[in-house]
Nucleic acid binder design. Structure first.
Length: 559
DNA sequence: ACTCCTGGCGCC
DNA sequence: AAAGGGCGCCAGGAGT
């Protein structure tokens, strides 16, 4: 049975059981401790509450684990996007309640700044009107959501999406609390080795200063050229007779000039220094763990983001600092060619399903069947189809692909056309892209083309939106599937009573930290979770979702 | 002092 | 060889 629970502000809670359609199925109980109220009711199948990030954080701190929940604010975001194409509209309980009653909708609270220490000025939830209590509002909004879900385009898939988004919220809260094992001493060794020693007074570390000098010298001028200022670099190359439109790496690599090598080396170190240097370590790693704050559904496509710490952009060289505890291992598992396999499953293209029905390297298989054995070309073609690439050999490859896998290409082409015409697209489970009017894509620098009324016409903006929606249906459906993997893995690990802990998630990759003797069981659980997720998300499908799994002591050794 | 924007690059 | 989708983060610079 489902129960709804709301905090009362004094550490207590109000709660009651719910009927199938979301109305009270018993008396409302008031308890003095939220944690005790939940802990003492293990028979509750799913807890309905306002916000997992807030309530579950407190429950975890009190040592209370929950198996399933329904996050009303997360559900509101998905439902409002599905119904009205208003992704990004306010989705707080207060906003949902106001919409229900036809009242002015309050804005969401601003995103909390990333901080390692709790702030004195936690913004807290968006307040309800003074004469409305949270419990009542929660009941009304939830019952409304149950009814709205039944009216979705695919109610069963929408229910699944709401449940898995909520599961993601539970996983995120647990991940943030657990953190990633992080050896600050190893991290410092890497920094010392690559960047050299630091000097007092906020100066650049030695190696960066040396490279900056080399860059200046290579231009052979008396003026100093600062490699961290793109304008400086472009002007210096211009004086040397080389015209650049930017200082991007791929553009610099094209030119022949003695400054290029040092400049590229500097940029690489600069990046490391600013993004994952000593101050990052100081700010984010405590007691041997890195605790990023995960935000499930932080992107429109359903991928997660993190708030501060850049947890989803950990550079390869820094991964040496991620080490298992003594006697423990890291089980590092990433889904093989997740997005092409998802495309096969959602488009139901016969040929592509057949290729994706093997556990083998999908690109190699694809290459053997359609690209004369050229794996790189096959990979490029398929990713180009998903990303909307239009240049280079992409168009020629698209033609090959379209002949061979017509339904798959038609699926993404349809999504692109919908986007260009200003329509909405959805993932397989019903996550919906933002409406065209909200975020008109902007292709700065391109000549403006005539715009037809009522849409983008065939402008650069229209094509950009087409690329976005083309990608959305694949990336988003993959994100939906990944949520189900996480949920299934979480349940399996809990059922098995392991000491293993999930410590990292990044789009198509999970890391589990576990005693060495549990590693085999964990690896099996991941494979099972992947298959389960595929079946639940897409129904019966020949498509397989293999993971590459490595059992290592150090994250850097996984690939 | 602050906020916002941009360039660049890390990850998927 | 060339530059397509989603992000976060940092530093510098412009604007206030």
């Amino acid at each position: 049975m489902r129960w709804v629970v709301a905090e009362t502000g004094d550490g207590g809670a109000r709660l009651c059981p719910l009927t199938q359609d979301g109305r009270p199925a018993g008396p409302v109980v008031r308890e003095s401790s939220l944690a005790e109220a939940v802990r003492s009711r293990p028979e509750v199948e799913r807890w309905v509450w306002r916000s997992t990030a807030e309530i579950y954080r407190r429950l975890l701190a009190a040592g209370v684990r929950v198996e399933r929940c329904y996050d009303v604010e997360a559900a509101e975001a998905l439902l409002i996007g599905h119904e009205e194409g208003q992704s990004g509209q306010p989705h707080s309980l207060a906003a949902a309640w106001a919409r229900l009653h036809g009242l002015p909708v309050p804005a969401d609270a601003p995103a909390r700044a990333a901080e390692t220490q709790p702030s004195l000025f936690e913004p807290g939830p968006v307040p309800l009107p003074p004469d409305t209590d949270e419990f009542t509002a929660l009941l009304e909004v939830y019952a409304g959501q149950v009814a709205r879900t039944a009216r979705a385009e695919h109610p069963d898939r929408m229910r699944l999406l709401l449940a898995s988004e909520s599961a993601g919220m539970l996983v995120a809260a647990e991940l943030s609390r657990t953190g990633i094992p992080w050896r600050a001493d190893v991290h410092r060794e890497v920094l010392d080795g690559l960047l050299g020693e630091r000097f007092p007074g906020g100066l650049e570390p030695r190696r960066m200063a040396e490279l900056a000098d080399e860059v200046s010298r290579a231009f052979g001028e008396s003026v100093r050229v600062r490699p961290d200022l793109p304008n400086d670099i472009i002007r210096a190359f211009a004086r040397a007779g080389i015209a650049l439109s930017s200082t991007r790496k791929w553009e610099l690599q094209q030119i022949d000039h003695p400054a290029v090598a040092s400049l590229l080396a500097y940029k690489s170190l600069y990046r490391l220094y600013t993004a994952h240097g000593w101050s990052w370590l100081q700010q984010w790693v405590h007691d041997g763990r890195f605790h990023p704050e995960y935000l499930p559904g932080g992107t429109v496509s359903g991928r997660w983001t993190t708030n501060g710490g850049g947890a989803l952009q950990i550079p390869k060289v820094i991964r040496q600092a991620v080490r298992a505890d003594p006697g423990w291992r890291l089980v590092v598992a990433d889904a093989d060619q997740m997005e092409p396999r998802v495309l096969a499953a959602v488009s139901r293209d016969g040929g592509l399903m057949e290729v994706a029905g093997t556990g083998q390297d999908l690109y190699a298989d694809l290459a053997a069947r359609a690209f004369g054995g050229d794996r790189d070309r096959a990979k490029l073609a398929l990713l180009g189809a998903i990303y909307g690439q239009t240049s280079g050999d992409a168009l020629k490859h698209m033609a090959d692909l379209r002949r061979r896998y017509p339904a798959a290409v038609a699926y993404v082409d349809d999504a692109a056309r919908a986007g260009e015409e200003g329509r909405l697209v959805r993932t397989w489970m019903g996550r919906t892209c933002p409406p065209a009017s909200m975020a008109p894509p902007d292709e700065a620098g391109l000549p403006q083309e005539e715009e037809r009324p009522g849409g983008y016409g065939s402008t650069a903006a229209a094509r950009a939106r087409g690329r976005f929606t083309r990608n959305f249906v694949v990336q988003g459906s993959a994100a939906d599937w990944a949520l189900l993997v996480l949920a299934a893995l979480r349940h399996a690990m809990a059922r098995a009573g392991l000491r293993a802990e999930l410590v990292f998630f990044q789009h198509d990759e999970v890391i589990v930290h576990c005693p060495a003797e549990e590693a085999g069981t964990v690896a099996e659980a991941i494979a099972t979770a992947a298959a389960t997720a595929g079946r639940i998300a897409f129904g019966p499908t020949p498509v397989r979702f293999p993971f590459t799994t490595a059992v290592v002591e150090c994250y850097a050794d996984a690939k």
